[in-house]
Design a protein around this nucleic acid. Structure first.
Length: 696
DNA sequence: CTAGGGTTAG
């Protein structure tokens, strides 16, 4: 035998650990489930598996990675023993990473029963499984076990404990563990900061961030995500800028989509849509969340039409909408009242593989209700199996009936809901109370408000706002004011705003001033309140006060929110500001508007000049009344939309008195149905009458 | 072999 042969012969009798290494290498290079199975069966055949727990662990880990935890488990059961804790840990890891948290906990119990000693690697998996399911009782038991076994000063275990307590809603228990830690790295700090952020305690989160920086711990991109969310909650745009700048300076945004997406969301919540867009545009790669964050940045800031434009770009770029995209876009259409786009997106959802989850179907119902197609919404509801009618779907129906002025029907739906055993929530009550308000059902509204306790729903500020609105509109201004004084919490802008609006309708200067002064303190930058209050002064000819308010607005640099009306003609969407000559049909619209003014006067219309007086800006001509945005929109509708089809208009503010009366005349003269959605509700004009019976 | 992250209606 020559030298080479001898060498080969020696290689043919490898030692056990050489073999183990060799098989290990083969396993590591294995890249598919089928090869893994082949290797597994080969190793079983030669009886190697039983002899090498380390190799077994590798295979268990691989199977788990391929989401075949059952095969992993049967191999585990074959080779497990009390001594090899790491085998148990491997199986725990497989379950936890695969999201099979119950299996993790079951295995942990088996571990205890079998007398296997857990170690520092064991607990993080178990704690994560408790955390993911908010199992605080189990989590606390595990904590006891950690103390008993003496792993309570392991940094990883402690971090997992903090996280577990936080995710179980016991954030202060988490903080206690955190404070006791002798050593904390970046991850530990981030866990605690994230905990506060998730609990919507943004201030605590940022305080901790400050402390972290004082201790010289650096921040990575994961921390940036949590910090961004916290800043977003505060809505502080200055702070948002500095977080963004910090992240750029420390190179934390390079190839980190998560962090960039979080920055987009942060700017969106700080009303800095343009900055959000800049970040979005700067990304070389975008995932679903990037697109969705930007889309919702637009919708959150009232720029739903921009969202529609971006949505088209998203599809053009080959990124298919996912269920979240669908939800955002459907609500954008609801916000706009855009029936054409709403239908288009509904069809798109049906034709794509997006699953029509309950939430999406609720959003679609809501969209149809808000686009004036209440019947479609009702149909969608009736088509549902009773078991699929969750509280949200009932809520959509109640608020749909309410905003269309069908208060009685809303009440019927509400009682049907409770009869069928569906628990009403805080939204049910805002919907039903505002439904009563729109229909002037004062007695019923009061009853619902006092019934809230029966359903264990605690009245919040928004419910008080509904009641103030209900009483105030009905002229019971002092009762409304008394209710505000009885509130257990501080009255917010919604509550005072409702009172101020009621005072405008009923021309009560004294209470109006009280409401307005509170509002000027709560939200001094909101132009609407100055406008309403000056309208009250104007209606009682207190021109000096009007001038003073106008001066206040000017010195604060506030401009009245511009009225804006939208009408859809086929696939075209036309938005009108006052006298918007940019419209392609402007000549037609202009001619029609002038025609209307004459036609209406001939049947008895008298321009309501008080609407002009109410304007803070100098619009004291009858002419300007004719060019209110909703009148331009209706003119376009009359010219372009075929006879027999209803005319739908959406307006961003409340319709003014003059337009309301004009639309009644127009519906009569032209024999057409005009449906206007204003900031508060629907008005169906038909045959010279409005569905709101002039109560709005 | 172990701990932390972003989008979602009414």
């Amino acid at each position: 035998m020559n030298r080479q042969g001898l060498h080969a012969c020696r290689n043919n009798i490898p030692t056990f650990s050489e073999l183990e290494n060799r098989y290990n290498r083969i396993l590591q290079s294995c890249s598919s489930l089928s090869t893994l199975k082949q290797i597994h069966s080969a190793l079983t055949t030669i009886g190697f598996i039983g002899q090498s727990p380390h190799l077994g662990a590798q295979i268990i880990a691989k199977y788990s990675k391929y989401e075949h935890t059952e095969i992993a488990r049967s191999l585990f059961d074959e080779i497990r023993s009390e001594q090899n804790s790491f085998l148990w840990n491997t199986m725990l890891r497989g379950y936890t990473n695969g999201g099979h948290f119950n299996k993790t906990l079951e295995l942990y119990l088996l571990m205890q029963r079998t007398g296997v000693r857990p170690n520092n690697y064991t607990f993080p998996f178990v704690l994560k499984s408790c955390a993911s399911q908010s199992l605080s009782v189990q989590g606390k038991l595990v904590h006891g076990e950690i103390i008993r076994t003496g792993f309570d000063s392991d940094m990883y275990v402690e971090a997992a404990l903090v996280d577990m307590y936080a995710k179980c809603g016991l954030i202060d228990d988490g903080r206690r563990v955190f404070d006791k830690m002798s050593k904390r790295d970046m991850v530990c700090w981030t866990v605690m900061i994230t905990a506060y952020e998730q609990a919507e305690r943004a201030k605590d989160a940022l305080l901790l961030l400050q402390k972290m920086q004082q201790e010289g711990i650096s921040i990575d991109s994961v921390a940036v995500v949590s910090v961004s969310s916290a800043v977003g909650q505060l809505g502080d745009s200055k702070m948002a800028e500095s977080v963004h700048a910090y992240a750029i300076c420390n190179a934390l945004l390079l190839d980190d989509m998560c962090a960039k997406n979080a920055i987009i969301g942060m700017y969106a919540k700080c009303a800095e849509v343009e900055k959000a867009r800049l970040v979005f545009d700067s990304m070389e790669e975008r995932d679903w969340i990037s697109w969705n964050s930007m889309l919702s940045a637009y919708t959150q800031n009232g720029l739903a039409s921009e969202a529609l434009l971006l949505f088209d770009q998203m599809q053009a770029s080959g990124c298919k909408p996912n269920p979240v995209t669908a939800l955002i876009m459907v609500s954008a259409c609801a916000y706009l009242g855009s029936r054409e786009n709403g239908r288009r997106i509904h069809n798109l959802i049906i034709n794509s593989s997006i699953k029509l989850e309950l939430a999406l179907r609720n959003a679609l119902m809501d969209m149809y209700a808000k686009c004036g197609e209440l019947d479609t919404a009702i149909e969608m509801f009736n088509d549902r199996h009773p078991s699929e009618r969750d509280a949200s779907s009932w809520n959509v129906l109640i608020s749909g009936y309410g905003t269309h002025g069908f208060g009685k029907e809303a009440l019927e739906i509400f009682s049907q809901m409770t009869k069928e055993g569906v628990q009403p929530d805080h939204i049910t009550f805002t919907s039903i109370l505002s439904a009563c308000s729109h229909s002037g059902l004062i007695h019923e509204g009061r009853q619902c408000f006092s019934d809230m306790a029966k359903f264990c729903v605690v009245p919040e500020a928004k419910h008080y706002a509904c009641m103030v609105d209900l009483l105030g509109r009905a002229g019971l201004l002092y009762e409304a004011y008394d209710l505000i004084k009885q509130m257990p919490s501080q009255p917010n802008d919604g509550v005072w705003g409702a009172l101020l609006l009621a005072c405008t309708i009923h021309r009560n200067t004294k209470l109006g001033e009280i409401a307005a002064n509170n509002l000027f303190q709560l939200d001094p930058e909101h132009p609407g309140y100055y406008v309403l209050m000056s309208n009250i002064y104007a209606s009682s000819s207190k021109w000096h006060e009007v001038g003073k308010l106008r001066g206040d607005m000017k010195s604060r640099g506030l401009r009245k929110i511009a009225a804006f009306s939208v009408i859809e003609y086929g696939k075209e969407v036309h938005g009108f500001h006052t006298a918007d000559q940019m419209n392609p049909y402007w000549r037609d619209v202009h001619r029609k508007v002038e025609e209307l003014a004459i036609e209406m006067k001939m049947v008895g219309y008298v321009p309501d000049r008080s609407c002009v007086l109410h304007d803070v800006e100098d619009e004291d001509k009858e002419h300007s009344l004719n060019y209110h945005s909703e009148k331009l929109a209706v003119a376009l509708g009359l010219v372009k939309i075929e006879r027999g089809a209803d005319i739908y208009i959406t307006k961003n503010l409340r319709v003014c008195n003059d337009c309301h009366s004009a639309f009644k005349y127009i519906s009569h003269i032209y024999g057409r149905k005009i449906i206007v959605r204003d900031a508060n509700r629907f008005h169906h004009f038909q045959g010279g009458l409005c569905s709101c019976r002039d109560y709005w």
